[in-house]
Design a protein around this nucleic acid. Structure first.
Lengths: 111, 111
DNA sequence: CAGTATCCACCTAGATACTG
DNA sequence: CAGTATCTAGGTGGATACTG
């Protein structure tokens, strides 16, 4: 996420490393929706109520860069670009599921 | 985290709600260290290499406000303040552990 | 020891307009 | 359709000094 991020928290804070990847406003949610399978750019956009094109593009690029998401461009007109979890990204599934589950319970309890 | 946050992502993004609580630069790490038990302010500070007093105070207040952490002040001189996970916070343990575990593997793989 | 109080650089994220 | 390009407000986090 950060350019020159050093994980120098001496006693080791692997949590920090993980949150750096899935934190931010949209990354976790993007991942959450990709768990169910491949999605095209605009499909993703519709699922992420309120995200701007710029932001979605940015988040996807970062997720791609750190190897969690795969971007596949089809040489067609109109253009088609699909996004899916990489092998690395797949390993996040249980975590995403846990986050979603916890969030559901919390939202339910608050209501 | 945000004041007037509305979780209006129509299809439901409970992940967003959760990340909003444990995201940010320090919250997850604070939680991570509190999993092992109660800690005093400065103990926590030493474990979070690089955090400033201001930041740690702020993060702790927010965690307290959303009911994940309990703050206990002892009427002593010198002052003593202890922080621990609330009952709600305890339910995050498996998630924190999962995040830490995943982060460890990823850092190991990168090395 | 465990905070507050200021001040400030930077980044995140949004709005908007344009393009291959 | 799937982006890029600009511009900008506001928030996040950091530095530093002070206090009960």
């Amino acid at each position: 996420m950060k350019k020159n991020k050093k994980y120098d928290c001496a006693m080791g804070c692997p949590v920090e490393a993980t949150l750096d990847l899935i934190g931010g406003k949209w990354k976790g949610v993007v991942l959450y929706h990709l768990v169910d399978g491949t999605l095209r750019f605009n499909e993703l956009r519709r699922r992420l109520n309120g995200v701007t094109q710029r932001m979605l593009t940015k988040q996807l690029r970062e997720l791609e860069e750190c190897g969690l998401v795969v971007r596949k461009v089809y040489a067609e007109v109109p253009p088609r670009v699909e996004y899916r979890l990489s092998k690395q990204g797949e390993t996040l599934k249980p975590i995403i599921a846990a986050l979603a589950d916890w969030g559901k319970k919390r939202l339910a309890a608050a209501a």
